[in-house]
Amino acid sequence: MQSNDQQAYDRGTTIFSPDGRLYQVEYAREAVSRGSPTVGVRTAESVVLASAARTRSPLMEPDSIEKLHDVDGRIGIGSAGHVADARRLVDFARRHAQRERLRYGEAPGVEPVATAVADHIQESTQTGGTRPFGAAVLVGGVDPDSARPRLYEVDPSGTPSEWQATAIGSKSGEIREFLETAYEPGLDLDTGVALALEALAESTDDNLAVAELDLAVLDADGIDRFGSDRRATALDDAGLSAS
């Protein structure tokens, strides 16, 4: 009988368990923790996003795995968990950013976009017939007015939280522990990139492969995505190259 009750709380997203938990949301967090990791690091003037994708076969084109996304040229999103769910969140963020521009004639800040994504995710935990998003996202960028770099995490419950440096996806606990000891506020860009790559390297025993790495910097000029040559150089500079 106990197990039947348990199943009932399990089934609907919108049903609390007696101890106040939403099991479906917790399962969604589980899905995130199985995804390949994404790291975000705030530097003095920018936010660095780094991600390692897993290719299932050498025949697969690594560029086709989407981990970091441009939202509106100024804000970037890194994801972990179900890629398919993350794509929907990214497109929501893109349309939201353009609606803000249409409405106010100004580029939206990072926090408004992150909270809009968070509200959208929250809706899926309180609406009948839906399941939560099996993805967490890092939203990063530089606010247009204050020129302050901002890094937000939004988890499958729809809770937004701001960070100096954090990680989502598999081994995110270990990565965050590493960042807690290694992170310093006011990093310059190169140190920030190196720190993000070192943190990402914590998630794997193997070397980070250039092809499976995604790296982007969001600063006052907008998003700067690193091509494979610059990723290789960045790995070299961080002392993480394969050779």
């Binding site: 441009d70 509106d72 040229g73 497109d91 893109r94 950013a97 353009q98 609606r99 521009r101 004639g105």
Partner: peptide, 16 residues
Amino acid sequence: LRSLRAEASLYESRRG
């Protein structure tokens, strides 16, 4: 003007 600018920007974000 605003709508066209938004469409062009959205296209660029979506398609790179």
